[in-house]
Design a protein around this nucleic acid. Structure first.
Lengths: 364, 364
DNA sequence: GTTAGCACTCAATATGTTTGAGTGCTAAGC
DNA sequence: GCTTAGCACTCAAACATATTGAGTGCTAAC
């Protein structure tokens, strides 16, 4: 977290006004206009002096010498970190959001899609939601379903509720009965095991060709799941950021999963708790140059969590959008916890579950 | 299909040259420039006369009286319908595409994602692929998996290889054993049944509360699947159409599934076989005003098929893009057929399987 | 039917002018 | 010593006015 030089109280007020006014109108704000608009008890000349000071410190800038001031990225950061009050979405909006969630089927993908839609709509920006992923995935249940001839559909259910499916081709056709027997045997052996344990037993124990093949597929899936590549992403509100030249190229980030993955990984590595605001890509990501990304992890930290975010122009309503991200993340966290994760409390390894639910906000 | 007035051979040549040149350069083409560029054996004045004729018939237009000609939508349509030769992607590109498909895991979602990526890359436009859907879905296999407490994960496999999953909350906790028994019983009763038959048996036969609840969920899923709402869409290459003002608003179409669904339904209703080219939205869809959508169904007609398409500016390389869409659609059709559908040949109702595979193209 | 010739058109570009919001600076005021 | 009124100065944006040149339509000759 960057340290900022101390500003006088008046300078802070002025900075906040510049930010708010610029966010609202999109036009550079001049000293005189500012005094008039907010009915200030000091003159425009005073404002000009403070402008000069703020400009010196890099919080505001002007497009050309005779233009009004606009906030710099640094200015936005100061604003977000120090001047942003506690803000909550209006009650009726929160109720509507909850309502929509309760309407939805009990399906993670539905919730994710819904979250993305809600974030996009309430923020007027783009949004994305990545599927929650476990750090250490565990085998729960395997099912082999005979399809035509030598083709078999394997359905693998992990602890955490994730379901993986994959086809495999056998050397020779087998009956559903035989397949079920194989599946049952493996289910008994590998229940609650993670990929390492399964790999160990595979090399130790004796399995026939079919069994080994299936186990290898299972291992594949588990490892892929462990590997934290982003498989499912739900996006929404791309239209919202189309018109703005500066924001448009952020779509590249949203579209290329590898790019998004690297950004999220890095951000996660250095980022703290709760809702985070990345302004102008923090100089690290070209794609986010004129954009702000407000993101939050959701789910259960360290064991089963995903990311959810709003992406829009630097010039966005921060209070509202931060509140929206926090609210939706909290809701998702509690849903994920309630419906997918309580079971894992049985596992010995994971003792601490840190649920990031801000009760003050999520109860009404 | 619209009837076009007959053009002289030279007029057709000129129209084709205007279209090709404009597609390449993006600039209105003048009579003199055309003669020089293509080394024509008639003069610019002759071209001007034909320009006038073509303009009269609405195939070309000019932005202002003293500007060169650009093709109208009508001009593009004539070009696509009559002047577009047989074109195939270069061998190495086809090989690369095949290679990528064979690299991918045997998973429908993988293939769809890959198709979208390939279409986007080879066309330089946006693309989308909708999941293939059955007209009449049939129950294949049901699995109930105990989760924490009263929560149960239901996994439903349909003929055609689709897998639906859904959570349900029981009135009281049940053991995995009990759940498996229930699942097995339902599997025996409902194997190969469609939603109507299941509904009939539900109202006729006697089922306990749990069974009824599960059956209702199954019915829900089946009906939703029957209902042809687009559930899964894979998009790619949105970045490609960002820069162009005219094309940009097509993103709205790609993003709003309901919108896309209505367009596809209508197009399907009136559209013919094979690859279809919709230019400028055919005056029916505002969102496609300055865009061209090249689309094709893939899969097995009338029983399990989806749509795949390229969306880009009207000014796009038609030959290449049509070839790309056809090639990918053919590949997908054969994959879907091989891996998901041969089993359904057992079903008595569906006798005719029309596979839209153009062998001349897909064998190398 | 085709072509050379020519006057005409008009977007694009460059150049000049005006306007006004906004600035920095200075000197006076609290 | 901070605040303020006053004033000359700046510069993008808006508007007006030439200049240019690719391209046209038309006509008369081939």
């Amino acid at each position: 977290m960057v340290e900022f030089q101390q500003l006088t109280e008046r300078q802070e007020r002025i900075l906040a006004m510049v930010v708010r006014s610029y966010i609202e109108t999109g036009k550079p704000v001049g000293s005189k206009a500012l005094v008039e608009e907010y009915g200030l008890d000091f003159s425009s000349a005073t404002v000009r002096n403070d402008f000069a000071a703020l400009g010196e410190l890099g919080y505001v800038a002007q497009l050309h010498t005779s233009a009004g001031r606009i906030p710099t990225e640094r200015g936005y950061r100061y604003f977000v970190q120090k001047l942003l009050g506690e803000f909550h979405l209006p009650l009726h909006e929160r109720q509507m959001i909850r309502h929509q969630f309760h309407q939805a089927r009990l399906e993670l993908s539905q919730w994710m899609r819904l979250s993305a839609a809600i974030l996009a709509r309430t923020s007027g920006s783009a949004s994305f939601v990545t599927a929650p992923q476990s750090r250490a995935n565990r085998f729960k249940h395997l099912q082999l379903i005979a399809t035509q001839g030598r083709l078999v559909l394997m359905v693998l259910v992990l602890f955490g509720g994730e379901v993986k499916q994959q086809m495999l081709t056998l050397a020779e056709p087998l009956s559903q009965h035989r397949l079920s027997t194989v599946a049952d045997r493996l289910n008994a052996i590998f229940h609650e095991k993670d990929s390492d344990e399964i790999a160990a037993r595979l090399s130790a124990g004796q399995f026939d060709t079919l069994e080994s093949e299936v186990i290898n597929l299972v291992l594949d899936s588990l490892r892929r799941a462990d590997h934290r590549s982003i498989s499912d992403i739900y996006r929404d509100g791309l239209v919202n950021i189309l018109e703005d030249e500066g924001t448009r190229h952020a779509i590249r980030l949203l579209e290329e999963r590898t790019l998004l993955a690297s950004v999220l990984t890095e951000q996660e590595a250095q980022g703290g708790e709760g809702v985070q605001v990345v302004i102008g890509g923090d100089g690290r990501w070209e794609e986010l140059k004129d954009c702000t990304m407000i993101l939050s992890r959701y789910g259960v930290t360290e064991s089963f969590s995903g990311t959810l975010a709003v992406v829009g122009p630097t010039r966005m309503p921060y209070d509202r959008n931060v509140a929206a991200v926090r609210y939706v993340a909290d809701l998702m966290s509690s849903f994920v916890y309630d419906y997918f994760l309580q079971e894992t409390a049985d596992l010995p390894e994971n003792t601490l579950y840190q649920i990031e639910v801000d009760n003050s906000d999520s109860i009404e």
